[in-house]
């Protein structure tokens, strides 16, 4: 066997193992989706069924059996609301930092990131008691605010990096023409950074959607998001695997797809910009 053939064979083996890893990692998700199409008795059948006549019943009757849309709506409102708030605060700030960076800019950004490292459980009591005092327990407003604050540092950092990539010459030219700062942001910076802003928002939505500490601790039913709703199936009486699987499938599907699109921002956002 020549060196080239050996190299080729090695490559083939590596690819086989890569696929094995991919199948193993994806299997629990596949199994969950599959179970969503079973009847309850098929779902707990022994031995487990790989081939069966699929039913759509779990999906079509999801609303009758659970209050799915209520929780889905809460998830949508809190993740989009939290993201919107974070973006509204972050865009002007990151813009100012990127184009008017001063001596403290780096320190400010680093400090912002450090607030992200404060463990939630460390401030559980104050947040809980403050929400209680102001009658904000189990409300979407609380979650929107917390999610915005949680994601603000990451959003700031990614936007800062995006804005810095905009060539300064373009802005200078427009300033020569006497464009105001507001017009500069709206007509020049936003269109140029649009892709970056959209994918940053996507990352923030993913992080809010999957947040599972505050949503469990601070809500009971009124403002519960899908993460908290799914957590409520932990009780033994929640042994409706097919139903839970259908709910779970619907709950994760949009976010998994978002995740595929936001991979690059995810790498940057979750490593706080250290890996690009």
């Amino acid at each position: 066997m020549t060196d080239k053939q050996r190299e080729h064979l090695k490559n083939r083996i590596a690819v086989v193992f890569a696929w094995i890893a991919a199948v193993l990692f994806f299997f629990p998700i596949f199994w969950m989706v599959l179970t969503g199409f079973k009847t309850e008795s098929q779902a707990i059948a022994i031995p487990p069924l790989l081939f069966f006549e699929p039913t759509l019943e779990n999906f079509t009757e999801i609303q009758a059996r659970t209050d799915y849309s209520h929780f889905a709506m809460n998830s949508i409102i809190t993740s989009f609301g939290g993201t919107l708030l974070a973006m509204l605060i972050a865009i002007p700030s990151a813009y100012a930092m990127a184009f008017n960076s001063g001596r403290w800019t780096k320190d400010i950004l680093m400090w912002m990131l450090s607030t992200k490292m404060l463990p939630a459980v460390g401030v559980l009591m104050p947040i809980y008691l403050l929400s209680q005092k102001f009658g904000l327990l189990d409300t979407k407003i609380t979650l929107v605010f917390i999610y915005a604050m949680m994601n603000l540092p990451i959003v700031m950092l990614i936007l800062f990096n995006y804005f810095r990539e905009i060539p300064k010459e373009i802005l200078e030219a427009s300033r020569m023409d006497g464009t105001s700062t507001f017009n500069e942001i709206v007509h020049i910076v936003l269109p140029l950074a649009w892709g970056g802003i959209a994918s940053t928002a996507l990352l923030s939505i993913i992080l809010c959607w999957n947040e599972a500490f505050w949503s469990i601790v601070l809500t009971t039913t009124e403002a519960s998001t899908l993460t908290a709703f799914v957590a409520s199936f932990q009780a033994p009486e929640g042994l409706f695997w097919a139903k839970v699987s259908a709910v779970s499938t619907l709950a994760v599907a949009p976010i998994v797809v978002f995740g595929w699109f936001a991979q690059k921002q995810l790498v940057q956002g979750l490593t706080f910009g250290a890996v690009k």
């Binding site: 994806f26 629990p28 999957n210 469990i216 993460t227 799914v230 957590a231 779970s248 994760v252 995740g259």
Partner: peptide
């Protein structure tokens, strides 16, 4: 390979 990372923790725990 990367999909499990996007599953919400409560769902993955239940699965």
């Amino acid at each position: 390979l990367i999909s499990p990372f996007f599953i919400m923790p409560t769902v993955s725990a239940l699965v």
